[in-house]
């Protein structure tokens, strides 16, 4: 029998910790290091907190934060759309297995592919506006991607459309694992569809809904780069779809100022870490 002392568990996990440190700690250290420098190539002159001062004064940075906050609003429709469609499929509508495959299709396609297709569809003279004009609704034809006041909401709708596919499958798999006896019992007791959904189904899905909400928040905060880079194009029109990811990318790779990109990343890191800390404390 192997005798262990209190250090044994730490020794056992040490290799993995070392690997994680190697993968994550050095980049995070460099991130903080870069944020205090005017980086040229791989290093640069130390300039204190000048990069952070710049960020706090930069209107584009504020604009990017506002846009990310606006995108967070998408989490609500994302949840609702996913839930409603998942429940509808769970009710085993005629051909539900086909619909299940169909609704998951957008999620299988890579964002750039979806992006290029949607970009063409939403052009000012693209198929969507042409259809609206041809059915006598020309006033509804908008410059979905070219109007600064509309473009972000167009992107939001696209994100909801594609990302809800994952939610639908997630919710549906949970629904299919529910104890059907409870539902049948409620049915025998005379509960209607809404009552069964409200009092039997949804309470049992609380965990997966919470999980998907967190996924949605992460998506809207840190996974919309491909959408805004491809669909309207580089945060167009005129920074109308600028988000934090693109802002960081632009400074790091387009404007060759990795220091400012790193400073913005550090702020994002600090905010995310704080939120995680609060979340863990609450739970």
């Amino acid at each position: 029998m192997i005798r262990s002392n209190r250090f044994t568990p730490y020794l056992l996990v040490a290799p993995l910790i070392a690997l994680l440190l190697f993968i994550f700690a050095y980049p995070i250290y460099k991130l903080f290091d870069f944020s205090l420098k005017r980086v040229r190539g791989f290093d640069g002159e130390n300039i204190g907190f000048a990069n952070f001062e710049f960020l706090f004064k930069d209107p584009v940075f504020r604009e990017a934060i506002v846009h990310n906050l606006q995108l967070l609003l998408a989490v609500v429709p994302l949840l609702l759309v996913s839930l409603i469609i998942a429940i509808a499929l769970y009710e085993r509508l005629r051909g539900w297995r086909f619909y299940r495959t169909l609704v998951f299709m957008p999620y299988i396609l890579a964002v750039p592919i979806v992006g290029v297709v949607l970009k063409n569809m939403f052009q000012f003279n693209g198929p969507i506006n042409e259809t609206l004009r041809n059915i006598g609704l020309p006033t509804l034809a908008q410059d979905w991607l070219g109007d600064k006041n509309i473009a972000l909401w167009t992107v939001l709708a696209m994100v909801v459309w594609r990302e809800s596919a994952f939610g639908i499958i997630l919710f549906l798999s949970r629904l299919l694992a529910l104890n059907e006896e409870l539902i049948e019992a409620a049915q025998l007791d005379g509960a209607n569809w809404w009552q069964r959904t409200r009092y039997i189904v949804l309470p049992q899905m609380k965990g997966v809904i919470e999980f998907y909400s967190v996924i949605g928040l992460i998506t809207m905060t840190a996974s919309v780069f491909a959408y805004v880079y491809i669909v309207p194009g580089k945060g167009a029109p005129a920074n109308g779809t600028m988000v934090l990811e693109l802002y960081i990318y632009n400074w790091a790779f387009e404007k060759h100022q990795p220091g400012i990109g790193a400073a913005a990343s550090v702020l994002l890191f600090v905010v995310a870490a704080t939120l995680m800390f609060i979340l863990f404390r609450v739970r």
């Binding site: 939403f122 052009q123 000012f124 003279n125 693209g126 410059d143 991607l145 070219g146 109007d147 167009a236």
Partner: peptide, 8 residues
């Protein structure tokens, strides 16, 4: 052209 902002 009126679609200038939405095409590449």
């Amino acid at each position: 052209n009126d679609d200038m902002l939405s095409v590449d």
